[in-house]
Write a protein that binds this DNA or RNA. Structure first.
Lengths: 230, 230
DNA sequence: TCCTGTGAACTCATTCACAGCC
DNA sequence: GGCTGTGAATGAGTTCACAGGA
């Protein structure tokens, strides 16, 4: 194993490494062999210097005056993000969003495999999503134990999210992705990340309204929001 | 040019205001009249001092020694986030994720209304999601013009996201929420926010792997005690 | 020359600590 | 006493600018 550098990788950087990997996949199809930080950065929507810094956390990856080898960099990034090993995940709450996630090909192609789908609605239990049968939520502990899943995704209504979370943690899940609109409490050693879809829209609407300079709102607000992505 | 107060609301704060509002809605049901920053903060999963600072951007909201009036604060937050006026949105790409979003009640309850659903698949066009008919993507410009939508949500495959984006911008949409895994390029004056579901999972997996396996570490990362959200 | 790698400067955000008011 | 409001301190993350190798 090539455990190269005892460097510390900022979390913000980790999030972008996955993006670079995706962009590289697209470039590889084009038959090119090398790419510069500027090119890659613009495709990924980030600043070139930032991209170089991100990559430098993995140790030197490129060749000065030339750029980065596309295949070499893909390998490096893939390894940094955990290689190609399959990662068993369980997903609780097979509503619209849950089934959309269960069937999302973007996960499977990165090694995420939903080995357990759980729901409390008897009408949903027994159906299949993406080839995996939905099981009753009572079997949560058994499913986690069987599959050794270490990642749990919660797409239940807010009211039950905390109890589902507690059960996941007790069953041994240490990483949780929460789509329910509540703040989950977990013991130390467990990592929770939250995705709040309506908050994203809300922020967009806020900026939108500011730009139009319409309502008085409260006193004082920024007058101009620069455009551009991100 | 009448420049108002230089007081600006940081974007990170705006994102949390929506969360506070949601938490307050829950508290209001309980029949209480006031809350302290500590209580509210713990329910929202943030630091009390941070919450007070967030609220202070709206001007003084609370009573020293007492706390915040629940109803008063709800009003204030609602107004700051744009009141209760309905916001027409168009959604392009009615696949699994798109239909999940179109039907998500969390949006409607905040005034977001999907007045236009568009898709390119003839099998999807003509169906209804959440009571709104899906129309052919060719009618995008007409729909935006008719509905005066200023917010667009893209849930198409990555390959067509940029062209859909261009058409939205040309049609007059100035705020875009992008779920497609590509960086969109837009002219100045247009705001794009990106949500990348697989990246969130990827980061979670990375942290997971670091904890289990190797000693090397990710920078800082809060001592995940109570929900290390975001 | 071109492009990477990286310290240093800077911007943005969070947290602390305490002053001020009830 | 309790709790808000806020300057100051800290920290994270981004951008700059240039050193250094191909």
């Amino acid at each position: 194993m090539s455990q190269s550098r005892p460097r510390i990788v900022p979390e913000a950087t980790v999030a972008r490494l996955a993006v670079y990997l995706r962009v590289l996949a697209g470039l590889a199809d084009g038959g090119r062999s090398h790419v510069s930080s500027g090119e890659l950065a613009s495709a990924a929507g980030v600043n070139p210097a930032g991209l170089r810094k991100d990559l430098s956390y993995l140790g030197p990856c490129g060749v000065r005056g030339v750029g980065y080898s596309i295949s070499g960099l893909r390998e490096r990034l893939t390894e940094a993000l955990g290689g190609e090993r399959s990662r068993p995940c369980v997903l609780v709450g097979i509503g619209r969003l849950g089934s959309a996630l269960a069937d999302y090909t973007g996960f499977a192609s990165r090694g995420f495999q939903f080995v357990g789908l759980l729901d409390s609605d008897p009408r949903t239990v027994g159906t299949e999503v993406g080839g995996v049968p939905v099981r009753p939520v009572e079997e949560l502990e058994a499913v986690v134990a069987d599959t050794q899943a270490s990642i749990g995704v919660i797409t239940t209504p807010a009211e039950v999210a905390q109890s589902v979370c507690d059960r996941l943690v007790t069953a041994g899940v240490r990483s949780i992705l929460n789509f329910a609109p509540v703040a989950l409490t977990v013991p130390a050693g467990v990592d929770v990340r939250k995705v709040d879809l309506s908050v994203e829209l809300q922020v967009l609407a806020f900026l939108d309204q500011q730009r139009d300079g319409s309502p008085p709102v409260v006193a004082s607000m920024r007058t101009g929001v620069s455009g551009g992505a991100r």
